[in-house]
Write a protein that binds this DNA or RNA. Structure first.
Lengths: 195, 195
DNA sequence: TTCAAGTGATACACACCTGTCGCACTTAGC
DNA sequence: GCTAAGTGCGACAGGTGTGTATCACTTGAA
């Protein structure tokens, strides 16, 4: 599962470089979605040639990035233990984990946004997981919005905005943390009763 | 003011083509921020050469688009009559006008988002106007958020998302209209008491 | 009607990104 | 230490977007 699919095992440093390229790509592409592979390699401390050796094409790199993003979302959904905790707690934990994983929110937005129908953005499993989270929030009366798409869009959009907030933003300080501000904002936007 | 700044007056059809290019650019760039000038010209029913005649460079076109966007926001802020009506009414009217003006929300997001500090995104006047709207909402108890940046970001992000919603989205139908859904979502996200 | 303004079409130069070599060098792994 | 795997460097070809210029044609406006 760890990037090695079928091909014979990579050397340790090579596999490490693959991860560095992915991390650099997430960061650079978040700032500029049209950034060249040269800039991505530079950010990873590698040459463009090496980027090409690890990823056959730009599209292959983007696909790998998408897979990684989906896996992180799935992992976060899994760790949030939906079945045992209260919906609001689950939601808060989910956001906490996503922030810890340093998920590239801008890139996530790009992916989710560009897939008008559901082309290549977030996987159906992730969408289903998020939908379940919101369904439980709705059942518990924490939100009133009924559309799964609307809930997901608002969530992703506000994740992105919360992440862009400077550390000393008054609302962020007041809320206590980014996950808490996000939970407040999302539940409020989706028709939840405050407090 | 009308695009003619200093240079001698353009012929009527030329000025009309300038407007068509701007409209086409807003639409095409909303779908693909990296679209070529050829595609923009094609969408406007013109040739790439003509696009270059009206706008010296790609950057000049983007700047003109930014100016237009800022002017439309200013116009909407002006028409919302902040001084005479209740804050919530002002806010609703503002969003209604923005939707009527078919403001390119995606492009607006790009501009606002990319200007980390305040480089070339929305003008200080627009930012100040929005800040005033939110200040009045706060004074009236419709929201509790205190950060001007946070309020503006949430607003712009949700404008974008509301605009992407299909006409038959359940939450949109329930709210009655896009502006109404937007007002509900923004006030809720910013800590307002529902209803 | 007449003429300048504007456009379409085409060509060109320039720059950038992508993808693929080949070769010398370094390094991980046995 | 040896060997193969991996990397850096340089070069190349192909594609695309940009910006400019020229020429014939069309059209707005006096």
């Amino acid at each position: 599962m760890s990037t090695s699919t079928g091909a014979r095992r990579l050397r340790a440093d090579a596999e490490n470089n693959t991860a560095r390229i992915l991390a650099a790509a997430a960061e650079v592409l978040a700032a500029d979605p049209a950034a060249s592979l040269e800039r991505i390699g530079e950010a990873a401390g590698l040459t463009r040639a090496t980027v090409h050796r690890r990823f056959a094409s730009r599209q292959a790199l983007l696909d790998a990035l998408t897979d990684q993003l989906n896996q992180r979302y799935l992992s976060a959904l899994d760790q949030s233990r939906m079945d045992t905790a209260a919906p609001l707690v689950v939601f808060l934990r989910l956001t906490e984990i996503l922030f810890e994983l340093k998920v590239s929110h801008r890139f996530a937005m790009e992916l989710m946004g560009q897939s008008d129908g559901c082309r290549d953005g977030l996987s159906p499993e992730v969408a289903a997981g998020l939908e379940q989270v919101f369904a439980r929030l709705r059942a518990a009366g924490d939100i009133t919005a009924t559309g799964a798409d609307w809930c997901r869009q608002v969530f992703l959009a506000l994740v992105h905005e919360v992440n862009r907030l400077p550390d000393d933003a008054p609302d962020l300080v007041a809320a206590g943390s980014r996950p808490q501000l996000l939970v407040q904002a999302v539940t409020g936007a989706l028709g939840g009763t405050p407090r």
